[in-house]
């Protein structure tokens, strides 16, 4: 059995009079430690995938197995525990708490974990050790995103979910962030999902899942992923 399995997942949003099928029997599987890119256009259902995987949203039907546990069957409390122990989340807009310093933002992520990484170490990991006392507003977008990544990995999650992590960043910074994510995945062995609409990023992944209209259109497995450093877009 694969580490993560999406089996015939359907997600229907009731939008007033008509139903919106965000996911339509989507199925895929991911092995532990893989760097996965979920690729799709806006509204394709890729974010829904991520939400479901992150325990932020339920499914209408189908099952999602993560490390042997069907997370669709979890109760709310278990789902929160799942989020806090197994998932690391990197937001498109970083979602740092403005009122906390970089260090404290990481603490915000680690405070509830059983065996978290030292926040300082996490910051060192993302190369921002010297900015740890800075508030988000004192950091650039890329730096903020790196803090956000540090916050995610400091919790030593099983899965790292990144929602358009470079969406709000310029090319250069975006690349740095992607490099960091790649690094995290490869070095720490954290299964990493990156959601993006940028098709040119695909080569960096072990597995590329293309989603269109709520369906898995294609799954491409790169035997030899290209390093981000070498990808241009």
């Amino acid at each position: 059995m694969a580490y993560i399995e999406f089996n015939d997942v359907e997600k229907i949003y009731k939008m007033g009079e008509f139903d919106l099928k965000a996911l339509n029997k989507a199925s895929f599987s991911v092995e532990k430690g893989e760097l996965v890119i979920i690729l799709g256009q806006s509204g394709s259902g890729k974010s829904t995938c991520l939400n479901i995987l992150g325990g932020m949203d339920g499914v209408t039907s189908g099952s999602v197995i993560v490390d042997g546990v069907d997370i669709t069957k979890l109760k709310e409390k278990e789902l929160i525990n799942y989020r806090r122990n197994d998932i690391g989340f990197v937001f498109q807009f970083y979602n740092l708490v403005q009122n906390l310093t970089a260090y404290e933002n990481i603490e915000l992520g680690t405070q509830m974990c059983k065996k978290p990484m030292n926040p300082k170490l996490a910051l060192r990991h993302v190369g921002l050790e010297d900015r740890m006392d800075n508030f988000p507003s004192q950091l650039s977008g890329g730096q903020q995103q790196r803090v956000s990544i540090a916050r995610a990995i400091a919790r030593k999650p099983k899965i790292l979910l990144c929602d358009e992590p470079t969406g709000a960043l310029d090319y250069k910074t975006g690349k740095q962030v992607l490099e960091l994510l790649e690094d995290t995945c490869r070095k720490d062995g954290i299964t990493t999902f990156i959601i993006t609409h940028n098709i040119s990023l695909a080569p960096m992944a072990d597995k590329v899942i293309k989603i269109k209209n709520g369906k898995v259109e294609d799954i491409v497995i790169n035997k030899k992923p290209v390093k981000v450093k070498n990808i241009e877009w």
Binding site: G54, M56, K77, I80, N81, Y82, R83, R84, N85, I87, F89, F91, F93, N95, V97, Q98, L108, G109, M112, R151
Partner: peptide, 14 residues
């Protein structure tokens, strides 16, 4: 709202 949602995503209990 965002901040709170983020906290929830981070796994804060209710």
């Amino acid at each position: 709202q965002r901040e709170i949602a983020t906290l929830k995503v981070l796994g804060f209990y209710n």
